[in-house]
Write a protein that binds this DNA or RNA. Structure first.
Lengths: 218, 218
DNA sequence: GCTTGAGCATACTACCGGGTATGTTGTCAA
DNA sequence: TTGACAACATACCCGGTAGTATGCTCAAGC
């Protein structure tokens, strides 16, 4: 609320990132409602006081985890936005990167998933509503970026589906799916993640009706 | 616990089905942890007493909702198990029916989804563990049925993927996806559900690498 | 008509967890 | 040196909720 310089915001973020990570892990494992603030604090090796010093409420903390997760997503596909002419090539790159981001930041992505839907029914105060609408907007504008490219692929004749809205939904769902069924191996093998992302990406692109001849290098 | 005749079990089920439905709706809207027993009772126009007369705990109630949802799934695909020679034709039928069941029994399927994973971390008593393992088994054996047919489709040369395990996961995820992004219209149009199920099914089958020439009638 | 038990409702307890109020410590600026 | 404030820890409050104990009613069986 007070006038804080950007450096102050920066250091605050550094302090908070540790909290964010612990919160994301807790929320992923037990869900938002089943995770207590004390749980998050225990994971940090500290107490409630630390969390409530940085966040005004549990919902605020969750919102920040959500926001951070969406920032990671947006940052990952940002370099690709202007780098391709062919929409299919662009879609391939975006899908692969998106899926890799899912795998690499799984706890946050699980929070994004649980996300707004649950909070909508619980949140009561007007400011909370406002925050949720904002977060919802982040998610939707992200999905729209994919939808536009998907529609471009259809117009190029290389994809084949009926409703772009539905197609986008299933497409993203296929790419998101590993955050649920993939449990990371002890050997944190980056190649293995790449392998999984490739398979999800191929599945999703083929689901859109894109021929295998375009998917050799995925 | 006492020796109950089958008819007694039958009438008990009838009484309980009303509770099951209310519980499924509550759990779908707010999630398991955020739904109180009183919420479920309110939706029934009754009180806690009724629920605790039939169920020993909240977890028990949820388990029954889960079980019921899985029974619906199993019953839906059961007639198809011996009706096809071509694995692709069988898979088409199973996928379509599965997706339609998702759409028609959405509240229960959302509970199945939230399902065991969350409870695993919360459930403490040994008997609860036992129940969860049983429910987990229901889900897995159901998935295995799909996996076998999917593998059959690959062996027939009409499908093309690398890991049948991963392929099955993404495949089912694509078919399950409408329980999240589809919100039923006021006009409870059965044809519309069929339309959506068709699109999901085509997406999922194409994702497996099955050619469009096999998917005209989906 | 009396008992018995199923099928609930009512009233109550115990505890957990979100939130707050206050104390403590280190650091930095004046 | 001291005041001020950030960054926590400690101690406490209190509302909500799972679960229980008990009361009520009605229908069936004898």
């Amino acid at each position: 609320m007070s006038a804080t310089s950007e450096s102050e915001i920066g250091t605050a973020r550094i302090h908070q990132e540790e909290i964010l990570e612990a919160a994301a892990l807790c929320f992923m494992e037990r869900g938002y409602n089943a995770s207590s603030i004390d749980d998050v604090a225990r994971r940090l090796g500290s107490t409630k006081g630390r969390i409530y010093h940085h966040y005004r409420s549990k919902a605020d903390l969750f919102a920040d985890v959500y926001r951070y997760g969406m920032e990671l997503n947006a940052a990952a596909i940002k370099p690709l936005c202007r780098a391709y002419d062919d929409p299919v090539e662009k879609l391939k790159a975006m899908a692969k990167v998106h899926c890799l981001t899912m795998l690499r930041t799984r706890p946050f992505q699980r929070c994004v998933w649980e996300g707004v839907s649950l909070l909508m029914r619980g949140a009561t105060t007007p400011e909370q509503r406002e925050t949720l609408v904002e977060l919802q907007g982040l998610r939707e504008s992200y999905a729209i970026r994919f939808r536009e490219v998907i529609e471009g692929a259809k117009e190029s004749g290389k994809a084949d589906f009926e409703s772009s809205g539905i197609a986008t939904q299933i497409f993203l769902m296929a790419l998101n799916s590993p955050i649920f069924w993939y449990s990371p191996r002890d050997t944190d093998d980056d190649e293995q993640l790449d392998e999984i992302a490739s398979r999800c990406t191929r599945f999703a692109l083929q689901g859109l009706g894109i021929g295998k001849e375009y998917l050799q290098d995925v």
